[in-house]
Design a protein around this nucleic acid. Structure first.
Lengths: 192, 192
DNA sequence: GGTCCAATCATAACATCGTTTCGATAACGA
DNA sequence: TCGTTATCGAAACGATGTTATGATTGGACC
């Protein structure tokens, strides 16, 4: 009974897509429920019915962002262990710079709920596994996989974050090489 | 002519202090002009007269935050070159964790104006100088001071940022040791 | 010393935001 | 056919950033 639902999974995906597009093109300041709803040809009520809240819409974008990042890292794992690890590192920066506003949302204070943090940890796993593969093959040693992976994550996130904030000088090519250099240096520190 | 000014430098400092207190205790979401003005016993007009805008108030907090950070890093420079460099690194984390919301404001997307970025660069100089001292004394080698300093900054900022986001496990003591370990590892990579 | 005047500020109005309420709508069972 | 009930769009509400308005104040001038 009742009338047919139009607040369905398809609309949810459309809202998420429009919100992501708006975030990407105009930044987090332009993310208003009225604009997102209008872009998806619906009313603001849809957001409350499908997400519950603006914060929960942002959390959904946060979760989606980490899921995409995790898949991008997994896709990058190819070749010999050390080579794959380097590829994962470069893919991390590529994903972040492709959607800097989303990246800012993912790491920008928004206190993540317990399950949201779980998604972030899941996105982190491809890196841990890649490090573990290097440990197993004897290409790396000295610390456990999680410790080394956290360290590499910090280097990557740190440099990317400074770069997005405009605090790293040089041309795009120079910054890319600087990132590759920093990554190599960090990996070299764990060679046998 | 006219009446006596009450929107003076003292009120400006008071507004900045109250805003910082509010940010520190309740986060960026609680930073409303009406609350800040009420805490400083004035009206919202004062903010517009003294800062021009809410964004410019936030920018002033951003600038103040980097200035404090720079002073904290400068204060930490003591002892032999390598020892001083390590102290600067540990002081960086201490300053960030002491005011995580402010730290988030400083690195959280807020597109910094050209002169605001200059302040951030200035805060970064104590680290560059500390690295340069190590290069001059022969304790470090292999890259120029700015490159090494940027790398160390990335490691520090990355780990601190992940820690604030709740993405680094372990107790506070374990995280402190993990940070010290990462810092040491990053410096060791540049030993002669 | 009284009167104007211009600078200065507190108050109130405005547009917009997130959120909630409410009446209109539309399918299903009787 | 009709009533019931889930569902939705529009409008209302409080709060926010911002701007306009009018009251207030202290010196300048006669």
């Amino acid at each position: 009974m009742g009338r047919v639902k139009t607040y369905d999974e398809a609309l949810r995906q459309r809202l998420l897509a429009e919100a992501a597009q708006l975030l990407s093109s105009e930044g987090v300041g332009a993310l208003t429920l009225r604009r997102v709803a209008a872009l998806a040809d619906t009313s603001t009520t849809a957001v409350y019915s499908l997400f519950g809240d603006k914060d929960q819409l942002l959390t959904a974008m946060y979760v989606d962002g980490f899921a995409r990042l995790g898949r991008a890292l997994t896709r990058a794992r190819a070749g010999a262990p050390l080579e794959a690890l380097g590829s994962v590192g470069m893919a991390y920066r590529r994903a972040a710079l492709a959607a800097p506003h989303l990246y800012g949302l993912m790491f920008g204070g928004l206190a993540p709920s317990a399950d949201a943090k779980q998604v972030a940890d899941a996105a982190f796993q491809p890196l841990v596994e890649s490090v573990q593969t290097c440990l197993d093959s004897g290409d790396l040693r000295g610390r456990d996989a999680e410790t080394i992976a956290t360290y590499l994550w910090a280097v990557s996130h740190g440099l990317v974050s400074l770069e997005i904030a405009g605090l790293v000088g040089g041309s795009l090519r120079a910054r890319t090489e600087g990132y590759r250099d920093a990554l190599t240096m960090s990996i070299v520190g764990h060679l046998p």
